[in-house]
């Protein structure tokens, strides 16, 4: 039954569609009009940082790893961007630094043979400390011209960057490197046996995750126009949740970064759905937690059903 099997592979899109529908419904019934361009723009700008972090996280998860240090890299890059005023030159430096932070993770995981969850747990602490060092108290600023091209409050500039991220993934997965990411994730021993340079692939994947976190940090500062050395902490668990909702398997090798992007948007929308449905914000995380588990059960249930039918 291909339609049922598809649900597992396309979990992210199905969940996103359902959430978007729910958003449209509760918004319209509570305000008496459908959401306008302002609402869409607000969603786009608030969701961009999580979309980028989730994209990087999904690459790592596809190889069977996990990156807890995204929280530290985002914090550090937010701190530097905000402290330096976010001029284009500094943003370039921040992107480089984020990549470097990720690369360090990758080298330790690949060549140091330390479990990804432990490596990134340790570097999370190091990067968060560095962020506090750069920006001890919340503050800073971002150059207005940078803000205008990233998260312009009047034009959907974020769409262009989102398209760029999507295009980047679309190209990446068709390259030799993209194939190798899946190969390492599905069966590392087999990948090694056919000559995939597993260590180099891992190092690159973590570096890319670092780059994504740095880009997310720049977007974060552009949207909030200030920095906070603890800004990255929430992204650790939300990026993992996005990847999960997006249907990327934690065992590696299965799923797509686009699913994770859809998952990230869905997770952001859920907060709005709860808000317009009149749910006490204090109960917000209760529903987010249920949403996460139910989305995954939906995916495993569909897979189970597909297996039963084909058997």
């Amino acid at each position: 039954m291909p339609a049922v099997r598809d649900l597992q592979d396309r979990l992210g899109y199905v969940v996103l569609a359902a959430t978007a529908l729910a958003y449209f419904a509760v918004y319209t019934t509570s305000l008496g009009r459908p959401p306008g361009s302002f609402d869409y723009l607000a969603i786009l700008n608030t969701t961009m940082p999580l979309v980028l972090v989730a994209l990087g996280q999904s690459l790592v998860v596809l190889t069977g790893g996990i990156d807890l240090s995204v929280g530290g890299v985002v914090s550090l890059c937010v701190a530097i961007t905000a402290a330096t005023g976010g001029t284009p030159g500094w943003i370039l430096a921040v992107l480089l630094l984020g990549t470097l932070c990720g690369l360090v993770n990758g080298l330790v995981v690949a060549y140091g043979r330390i479990a990804p969850i432990l490596t990134t747990l340790a570097t999370l602490s190091v990067y968060t400390g560095a962020a506090l060092w750069v920006l001890p108290v919340p503050g800073g600023s971002i150059a207005p011209e940078v803000r205008a091209v990233l998260s312009n409050p009047n034009a959907p500039t974020g769409l262009g960057w989102l398209a760029l991220a999507v295009a980047g993934w679309w190209v990446l997965r068709r390259t030799r490197f993209g194939m190798r990411v899946y190969a390492v994730g599905s069966d590392e021993t087999a990948a090694r046996a056919v000559g995939v340079p597993v260590e180099r692939v891992k190092a690159k994947v973590y570096a890319l995750s670092g780059l994504c976190s740095a880009a997310a940090a720049v977007f974060y500062v552009a949207t909030t126009t200030a920095g906070d050395a603890n800004a990255g902490a929430p992204f650790i668990l939300t990026s993992i949740a996005s990847v999960v909702v997006g249907g990327v398997a934690f065992t590696g090798g299965k799923g797509s970064a686009m699913g994770a992007v859809a998952g990230a948007v869905a997770l952001t929308l859920v907060i709005d759905v709860l808000f317009f449905a009149g749910i006490d914000p204090l109960y917000q995380s209760l529903f987010q937690g249920l949403f996460l588990v139910v989305a995954v059960l939906l995916g495993t249930g569909a897979a189970l059903l597909a297996r039963r039918r084909s058997a």
Binding site: V244, G289, L290, L292, V293, V296, L297, T300
Partner: peptide
């Protein structure tokens, strides 16, 4: 239910927080 431990316990953390 076969929910991955990361997902189940992360969800539970949210449920308990809420």
């Amino acid at each position: 239910l076969g929910v991955p431990a990361v997902v189940m316990t992360l969800g539970m953390n949210g449920v308990m927080q809420g």
